[in-house]
Each structure stands twice: as C-alpha cells, then as structure tokens.
C-alpha cells in the first residue's frame, strides 16, 4: 500500500475538499497503474450504461427504475384494485374487480410471469456484458500501456547496445592503433 501521498503539510486550518481531492488523486494514480477494485469497474460500467441510455434518450424516470437494484421496472401480474370514485360506487366497482380478477389472472399470470423472467434474464445478461466489456477495456488499456513501456524499454536497450558496441569498437580501434605505434 502506497502511503506517500499522505505525507503532505498542513497549516492551522484544513479544508475537507482539498483532502478529498488528494484522496481522489491517489485513487486515480492507482487506477493509472491498472489497480482497479471491483467497485470502480462497476462504476465505470454504470457510467457506460448511463451513456448508452442518454444516447437512446430514455425517459429519466424510467432510466432511474431500470438502474435501481429492485426489479420495479419489470412487469408484474400483481396489481392494486383501486377506483377514483368515492362512496358506494367505489365499493361496488372494487368488489366487481376483485371478483373478476381471479379469472383474468388465470389466463394472464403465466404469460406475464414468463415475460418477466425473460426481461430479467436479458437485463442481467446485458448488464454483465457491459461490465465484462468494461473489464476487458481496462485490461486492454493496461496491456497497451505495458506494451508501450516494453517497446520504450526495448528501444532504450537497443540504443544502449548500439552505444556499447560503438564503445567496444572505439576501444578496440584505439588498442590496435596503440599496438601499431609501439
């Protein structure tokens, strides 16, 4: 664990936002080095999902429901029996609806249930795909950085080898010149 960033000077007062910036900078440094926690991958995946949704111009209320941890966005065979009327009329209407409901649900529950399962499966699948995609992109970037670094190191070593070869050649040329003089 790198504690170097914590060794900063403080005055008589301290500003919380300045410390939070230092904390965020330390996290960004770790991420640059390819150290991501599961949660930061999740956050990146989440922002990617948000970006897709914004491009698709989805209603923000629906988007909030789609992103909530419960399954409130999904269709459900359960529903409330209400009426906007008041008094006896409301009571009668609610009673009728209650009597009819079991027969309606006999035919609709199965269909709704299956569709809800399919929706859930696809939502799960797509969410995991985005997460995996994000993970792969992070791995890809990290590997690319590593390849670049290796490439630069290779160039440096080649340069070093060339310099050393030249030095050896120079020394051997000098030695042969000396022996000719002798």
């Amino acid at each position: 664990m790198n504690k170097d960033w914590m060794n900063f000077e403080i005055g008589a007062d301290i500003n919380v936002e300045e410390i939070m910036q230092k904390i965020r900078a330390a996290i960004a440094e770790k991420q640059k080095a390819g150290i991501y926690t599961e949660e930061s991958i999740e956050e990146l995946a989440d922002s990617k999902i948000m970006q897709f949704a914004e491009e698709a111009e989805i209603d923000s209320a629906l988007l909030e429901r789609l992103r909530s941890p419960d399954h409130s966005w999904n269709i459900s065979p359960s529903y409330l029996i209400t009426s906007h009327r008041t008094g006896i009329k409301a009571g009668l209407i609610k009673l009728t609806k209650r009597m009819v409901r079991p027969f309606v649900r006999l035919y609709t529950d199965h269909i709704f249930g299956r569709q809800a399962q399919i929706n859930l499966y696809f939502a799960h699948l797509l969410h995991n795909l985005v997460r995996e995609l994000t993970r792969l992109q992070i791995n890809h970037t990290s590997l690319k950085h590593r390849t670049d670094r290796l490439e630069r190191e290779k160039e440096f070593f080649e340069q070093r080898i060339r310099t050393l070869e030249k030095m050896v050649k120079f020394q051997s040329d000098g030695e042969s010149a000396d022996s000719n003089v002798q």
Binding site: K3, M6, V16, M20, I23, I27, K30, E39, S40
Partner: peptide, 22 residues
C-alpha cells in the same frame, strides 16, 4: 462535512479505504 471541515466522506470503497487510512 464541507461546511464544518470536520470530517471526510466517501462515495465508494476506494474513497472509504483511502480516507480511513489517512
């Protein structure tokens, strides 16, 4: 926290970990 400058805050595990360590 911001108004008082009396504490740190976190919005994810990374921030929690670094703030706690600090």
């Amino acid at each position: 926290c911001r108004r008082s400058n009396g504490g740190l805050y976190y919005r994810n595990f990374d921030e929690f970990f670094e703030a706690l360590s600090l």
